[in-house]
Amino acid sequence: MLELRLVQGSILKKVLEAIKDLVNDANFDCSATGFSLQAMDSSHVALVALLLRSEGFEHYRCDRNLSMGMSLTNMAKMLKCAGNDDIVTIKADDGSDTITFMFESPTQDKIADFEMKLMDIDSEHLGIPEAEYEAIVRMPSSEFARICKDLGTIGDTVVISVTKEGVKFSTRGDIGTANIVCRQNTSIDKPEEATIIEMQEPVTLTFALRYMNSFAKATPLATQVTISLSSELPVVVEYKIAEMGYVRYYLAPKIEE
């Protein structure tokens, strides 16, 4: 028996919008720790890891570990039917091949339930090692989204370069080139507008902008984004979900042939 009640149901709506374009089908895992997902995109270039901790739910009952295969497209369709202020409850019975999403309006005058078919998904779970990153950039998520969108109109790839001067995003395309430098800016009165750069080593890596623009769909989940870079590792683009967990995207770099 599974029953998860989330008063701020809009979080789940935003999570689905943040991952559905990257991954079509995925297994959601439910355990005492929380509701989680790990999945690669179909090209195996990017990986998304989601965690919604059990403490973040108003009610969290998960009698045994469950892995439920879902079409994220279909799940997003169902969650779009929930109002932004609705309380969302996820329910599943042991051995059932369906999951139910229940939406309650804040005043309890409208209650809807949507039952969705589960699916069998053969997916590999990867072990992601703890790593020390050479550079960690924290910046406003809206700023990062804007940069990726703007650069995507000019080129296909972004070179992210962190030095003690700041973080530079560069692209090159048929029409020309673009460079955007963000310097450290520790706005004490407005922490959500801060750009903070922690650098052990200068690092320069190249990534496909298509994926970065897909990650930026998580912008409504967090005011800040954390970009962790090391020359020998995929970049991690993390959006923290307040008091609940995170959506992390891992993206393998492009290298010179």
Partner: peptide, 14 residues
């Protein structure tokens, strides 16, 4: 020309 690396080159299956 750039070569796109894959996630599986960095992370192993559990």
């Amino acid at each position: 020309p750039c070569l796109q690396r894959k996630i599986l080159e960095y992370f192993d299956g559990d």
